[in-house]
Design a protein around this nucleic acid. Structure first.
Length: 495
RNA sequence: GCUCUGGUGGUGUAGUCCGGCCAAUCAUAUCACCCUCUCACGGUGAUGACCAGGGUUCGAAUCCCUGCCGGAGCACCA
């Protein structure tokens, strides 16, 4: 390849990467390292794709790395789902990224305890038995609680008692001492550890009762795993500020932070929230995480949406702090680009109306792909009658062009072959429609976001393999899911 | 109430730091037309935005002020 061509291609590649803004101060670090810190309480919804899309792409741009860290430190309120760990890793893989490391916070509890002990030694934390409400009241007035000037020795003992599980849930917490008069009430003496009676679902962690809160756990882990750039939602904006107090005690330098706004996705009736989706599945309103009506990554995958179509749409959102609406049409448009050239064409007729065919050839032979003649054509038998969609049925005496077969005129319950040439179509006099044989066709169940649609496809559709994306001409793209009894099941992707 | 933070076409985004090249970029969307034995793909064109009002300036999407609207945090959730 000529050097000019090579350069042109490289320039093009760079252009593609320019969709994301530069990371702050990336040059100050030897290697850019990021992390995704999901809570494993279920498979991912579409919004979750943003994290791997963005940090995975930054990893490519900066030749950096990222770690997936499961922040599973709440066995009760955000109880981890044991299947979700792998489900999430699968979703990341499908999106086209590979983490450099995978860790679980619940494996690292001793590390958090050790760091808590260090902070206690420094006088940077105290055990507190105030009720949440009582502390909140004092805090909002900028008043310290009576436990605040406890000596380190007492705190140490009480913290060890917490670690040993000697308190019940709600009886004792460990607070990080910040500034009780800080003008932002959200930053005042936050809770670092609390007691939880419910055992962790992972057996390896089921003996722990004293669990760190996100700000402590995440703060310690980010440092220990060498994270240079934290990317996360605006809901955690104050987290960085809280964690800085901790970093100050340890003498650590806080990573660079990028906060982005929330993502809404249009086109779904179901709210994009793991708990909502889970509730609908449990209630039987959805068939599972990959139900076409569920706004999940698994659902898009089953519908034949490629991971990179989702990733590109996410990258186009950038990382602005304002909330954004992601339009599904952006994902569909990306997917169409990927899939169109490859997808074989077939006919599917919904609610077909049957007509006899008089005259003409035995069968029609439309192309498998209009842009690739070398891929051959299909055989759609016509002699034993055909079905067409109600909207396509011509009025009595009117003509219509059965694609790949020829021109016919309606005469009662028959379609009579005419000798019109393709000029009839080119001149705009006759519409081209799709059709299927009335006999020897393939029953199809098409699962869509609005519910199931049934119909019959031409016999050659039986050649389509499971997992293949095909286009039903004039309808849209679907992914072939498999056979269910004598029905072929497909999932609707998009027009 | 306190504290953060944001507002560019239907949607997303570029430009905002360092005012003029911005009568505002690109994509998507919608609508036309062309191509076509698909309403796909491709091509051409059109539609459509700087939250509002003041101020500074020769000049403001960009700087300042006020207002309006939005989002987030103030959890023993993440």
């Amino acid at each position: 390849m000529a050097p000019e061509e090579l350069a042109a291609i490289e320039a093009e590649d760079e252009g593609d990467d320019r969709t994301l803004p530069d990371l702050p101060n990336a040059d100050d670090y030897e290697e850019v390292r990021m992390r995704a810190a999901p809570n494993p309480n279920g498979p991912w919804h579409i919004g979750h794709a943003r994290m791997p899309a963005v940090i995975g792409t930054y990893k490519e741009i900066y030749d950096g790395s990222f770690v997936v860290r499961f922040d599973d430190t709440d066995p009760e309120t955000k109880r981890p789902d044991l299947d979700a760990y792998d489900a999430i890793l699968e979703d990341i893989d499908y999106l086209g990224f590979e983490p450099d490391e995978v860790i679980r916070a619940s494996d690292r509890v001793e590390t958090y305890y050790d760091h808590a002990r260090e902070v206690i030694e420094m006088g940077g934390a105290y055990t507190c038995s105030c009720s949440g409400e009582a502390f909140s009241e004092l805090k909002n007035d900028g008043e310290p609680c009576p436990h605040r000037d406890k000596d380190a020795e007492t705190t140490r003992e009480e913290f060890e008692a917490m670690v040993d599980g000697e308190y019940a849930s709600g009886e004792m917490v460990l607070r990080v001492k910040t500034d009780i008069e800080h003008k932002n009430p959200a930053l005042r003496d936050w809770v670092a550890f609390r007691m939880i009676d419910t055992p962790h679902p992972r057996e390896e962690a089921s003996d722990y009762r004293c669990w760190p809160m996100l700000d402590f756990q995440s703060g310690v882990d980010d440092h220990l795993t060498g994270v240079t750039h934290i990317i996360r939602g605006i809901d955690l904006q104050d987290s960085a500020k809280r964690q800085r107090f901790l970093y100050d005690y340890f003498g650590w330098e806080y990573p660079e932070v990028v906060h982005w706004g929330h993502v809404q996705v249009d086109a779904y009736d179901v709210k994009m929230s793991t708990s909502t989706i889970k509730a609908k599945i449990d209630a039987g309103e959805l068939d599972g995480w990959d139900d076409p009506r569920a706004p999940t990554i698994k659902s898009l995958r089953r519908r034949g949406i490629r991971g990179s179509a989702i990733v590109d749409a996410m990258l186009e959102l950038g990382t602005s702090t304002s909330d954004v609406d992601l339009s599904m049409t952006a994902i569909y448009s990306n997917n169409r680009d990927i899939v169109d050239d490859e997808a074989a064409r077939y006919f599917l007729v919904r609610e077909g109306e049957r007509f006899a065919v008089e005259g003409g050839p035995e069968a029609g032979h439309p192309a498998i792909h209009p842009d690739h003649e070398d891929r051959g054509d299909r055989t759609v038998p016509a002699a034993d009658g055909v079905v067409v969609e109600p909207d396509d049925v011509p009025a009595e005496g009117e003509r219509v062009w059965l694609k790949g077969f020829g021109c016919v005129r309606r005469e009662g319950d028959s379609l009579v072959h005419t000798d019109d040439s393709i000029e009839a179509v080119r001149s705009g006099d006759v519409d081209v429609i799709h059709w299927a044989p009335a006999e020897d066709n393939v029953s199809v169940r098409m699962r869509t976001m609005e519910g199931d649609v049934t119909g019959v496809a031409e016999p050659d559709f039986a050649d389509a393999d499971a997992d293949e994306v095909v286009q039903f001409e004039r309808l849209g793209f679907v992914r072939v899911d498999g056979q269910n009894g004598d029905e072929s099941v497909v999932y609707w992707a998009h027009k």
